[in-house]
Design a protein around this nucleic acid. Structure first.
Lengths: 202, 202
DNA sequence: ATTAACTCGTACATCGATGTTCGAGTTAAG
DNA sequence: CTTAACTCGAACATCGATGTACGAGTTAAT
């Protein structure tokens, strides 16, 4: 609820600052989930009081950032062109083009999890997560992805691996993440040929 | 430096409390990396002052916990019996028997990363991490594990997946983690048969 | 039984972060 | 140009966490 019930016409000035704050908060919170409002305000080139003028509490700011990130990521990860492709190819392209955005999305998501009550998190529908899940699901139905492991596990591992790659890349231990990431994710998702890596459906 | 330069004979009483504090700290910090000294003291059944009597600062406590965890994990993950086995089999057994300990080790490690300066972290040699790396390395030399991805990446992904499994299991989304985890890790480590999941060595 | 080690609660100083208030200055909008 | 919206810094209250000081009570060791 960042106040869009009434049009609430703001001055151009204010609008600009709100955007700057949101942007700075997104940037800072994705690297340090515990960034202070003071840091965020400074990074946005704005007084701390101004920040509180627009966001009544730190929590509401985090919430707005979450919503903002979900929107941005959802717009960027436009999968219309991926619809026609076989799932493995679609996933490879998706990762190659936007693993960074996906990772930031994931980080912000867990930053929000630290600062927001769980029910508030769950209240935000997350189209990105849904899309990933749909993609994996489609691959399974087409026989391109493995079906011996639960979908929820595959999705979780997908994000976990993404985050891991971003960490490693950030630490300089992984110069060119995209290809490595793609290979790893496909190893995870493609049907296992070796029986040792197949879950025996006891 | 938790003071083992001189024998420093302590009263049985004190010894017991130190153990209790260390134990409680390990327990709390592995779930919440930001647990307060007050919480830890209470969980240990000890006054906060007593805690500071043994550990001059929160930081030194975290450091002691890290060392303690490394020792315990190192003792439990005794791999003598795994030496003779082929790497994939060894890894499967290792995961099946001690993924929880490995995960706790990983969590504490990242908890320590939050509270300790990086150079202090690096100062603690970590036999567990080394062993995992050795195991993966051995598998690669034997032709059992893939060589198209960097070892450092495989190790990082190993831990990341472990942690992910613990998260999912904790949230009740993964009733029986061990087999799923084993299948996932082997998919990651075994040489890829499908060229789509193999890193093209450009 | 004596002593030294240890424990405990309470109280206090400090620090950093959140959120609020005030008042004076700027700036967009009509 | 006038007004209302907005911004800003400084100051303040509050809170929780860390770390210290004191003093009286327990408890292990010899």
């Amino acid at each position: 609820m960042t106040g869009r019930t009434t049009p609430a016409r703001r001055r151009a000035d204010a609008e600009r600052n709100i955007a700057a704050i949101l942007d700075a908060a997104t940037r800072l919170l994705s690297t340090d989930p515990d960034a202070s409002t003071a840091d965020i305000a400074q990074a946005a080139g704005v007084g701390r009081v101004t920040l509180y003028g627009h966001f009544p509490s730190r929590q509401s700011l985090v919430e707005a950032v979450l919503e903002h990130t979900i929107t941005v990521a959802g717009a960027t990860i436009d999968d219309r062109e991926l619809r026609g492709l076989p799932a493995p190819e679609a996933l490879a392209r998706l990762v190659r083009s936007s693993w960074e955005i996906l990772d930031r999305h994931g980080r912000l998501y867990s930053a929000a999890a630290r600062a927001l009550p769980p029910e508030l998190i769950r209240a935000h529908h997350d189209p990105v997560l849904v899309r990933i899940e749909n993609l994996i699901d489609r691959g399974r139905h087409d026989g391109d992805f493995r079906t011996d492991l639960p979908v929820s596990w595959l999705v979780a591992t997908f994000y976990s691996t993404l985050h891991n790659a971003a960490q490693e890349a950030g630490a300089g231990r992984l110069p060119d993440p995209a290809p490595v990431l793609t290979a790893t994710l496909l190893s995870l998702l493609l049907p296992p040929s070796d029986p040792r890596s197949r879950l025996s459906s006891s």
